[in-house]
Structure formats: structure tokens, C-alpha cells
Amino acid sequence: MSILKSREMILTGAIVVLVILIATRFPAFVAPSNLAAVFNDTSPLILLAIGQMIVILTKCIDLSVAANLALTGMVCAMINVAAPGTPVVVILIVAIALGALLGMFNGVLVWKLDIPPIVVTLGTMTIYRGIIFLISDGKWVNSHEMSGAFKAFPRAVLLGLPMLSWIAIILTIVFFVIMTRTTLGRAFYAVGGNPHAAVYTGIDVGKTQFWAFTFSGALAGLVGYLWVSRYAVAYVDIALGFELDVVAACVIGGIAISGGIGSIGGAVLGALFLGVIKNALPVINVSPFWQMAISGSAIIIAIAVNTRAGRTKGRIILKKAEAAQ
């Protein structure tokens, strides 16, 4: 527990140092309005990282999140075009439900057919992208085709923050409660920490993984609508490759790829770290190629740090070592 806490502290410290470094070159970056904009911009990544974290906790991985997002986003946009009067609440429900359904499809394949998650989601990633092409004929849904209310929702400002940011904040809290205070949350940790022990304790490993994929899918679906309405465009390739950023955010946030270790705080901080880098580097005139190299280095450094922290320190046999502890 103390290791996890300190890991989150290290990450928070790293983000603060990063922001200060950027501020020395470009003071306007730390203006509250700009920091709020960075947070808002990172909100989709935060939401997806929370879903991905749950999946990774159970020793799985969900590579289909970005494709799920794009497909759900396209469906929402097409509903809006077909029936511009559809209330945003209905669109939100459709987005979450469709996303969850796509996640459940992954989950069922992993649970009932025992296919490795990386293979399942690699497959569905392509399938979901393909479906977008089929339903849209490869055409774009552009800003002028979308209704005003459809586009306004994520931007609507409440108490100084846009709706998109509020959704990220509220769902962070909701999932924090789920992960720390519910039996299902506990099951996610148990399944990843030691699947064999989980079985003997009466936890159904496959079913728990199914629910992890469902959560990840539902979040991806929600982000699908938010993404499409925020950028006011939907097409086959939106958020292409974004699943890698999501996994990276989790890894930076200290979620163990081998399962069982991680926290909501870690996932959110990992996403914020990447968000700050992505937003700051263009501002201080770093070329896009360097940006990629820097993001990549951050991931490798994070993994190296996690691995060191996780390494066992050997058994305590000496009496003095025991006393020192």
C-alpha cells in the first residue's frame, strides 16, 4: 500500500516538475485557464485509461477501445443526422449502451471461448473499424450536419469547467468507489493478483474479466460521443492508434501489465502526465518527431521504475534485518 501511495506521489511530483520546467520557458502555460484547458483536453484519455486499467488489472488488455470509440461516435453522429431532435440524454444512453455491448463482445470471447485477450481485441479493433466504413460508406459526418445541442453538450460550462472535464472528474470518483468499496472492484484485483487463488475463493475469473471489458467498452462508448461532438466530425479513422496512448497512460500510472496491481489515481495521473507532455511540447516548439520520442521514453522510464519497485528484495533471514524492518 505504501509503495502504491509513494508511486502516485512520485508521479504527481514528476507532473509538477514538468509543469514548472515548461513554465520557465513559457510562463503562460501555468495560467489556470490554460491548465484547465490541458485537463479538458486530457479528459478523454483519463476516461479511457480508467477502463483500460480495470481490464489490465485482470491480466487482460483491450486494444479495441479506440475503434469502439470511433464506431460509437459514428453511430451517435448518424443518429443525430437522421433525427436531429433526439435529446442528448438519449444519445448519451445509446453511446454508453453500445460501447458496453461492444465491450461485452470482447468479454464473452475471452470468458467463454478462452481466446487470449490480445488476440480478441486485435480482431475486434479491425472489425469495429470495418463496421464504421460499412455503415458510413466511408463518408464523413461534418460539423454542419450535426445539431447545435449535439455539439454543445461537452462544451457547456458549469462552475468554470466544461462538461467534458466534469464527466472525467465525476467518473473518476465513481470508479474510485467501485474499485475500493465494492465486491466487484475487489474481484478485479483478486483475479489479476492470483487467478488460481481467486477460483478457490469462489470468484469466477472469466466472468470478472467479462465485466472489466464491459466497463472499458462503456467508457469507450461514452468517450465516442464526447469526442465526435467536441471535434464536430466523425469518420472512419478518428482516434486511430489512440489505444496505445491509453495503454501507455496506464503503464506510466503504475498499473502492472501482469495484473493485480494498480489504482484509479495512478491511471488518472498517468493520463495527465501524457496530456501535459502532448500539450506542452508543441507550445515550446518541439518538433512532432521529438514529441513521439519523448512520449516513448516516458513509457520506458515508467516501466523501468515500476519493475525496480516490484522486484523482490530477497527473504529476511538475518535477525538484524528483521529487527530493522
Binding site: T183, R186, Y189, G193, N194, A197, T201, G202, I203, G260
Partner: peptide
Amino acid sequence: GLQGAIRPMPIFQNVSLASLKRTS
């Protein structure tokens, strides 16, 4: 080692894991 404890989990969560029905 393989089938008993959930090693990354704290002691109290391990102990209650099979009795969560009662503590929830």
C-alpha cells in the same frame, strides 16, 4: 504459493476475500 494468497493484496483484503458476502 500458486493457489493460496493474492500476493499484491493487503492482508485484510485477503482474509475477507471469501467472506465478502458477509462484510458487504
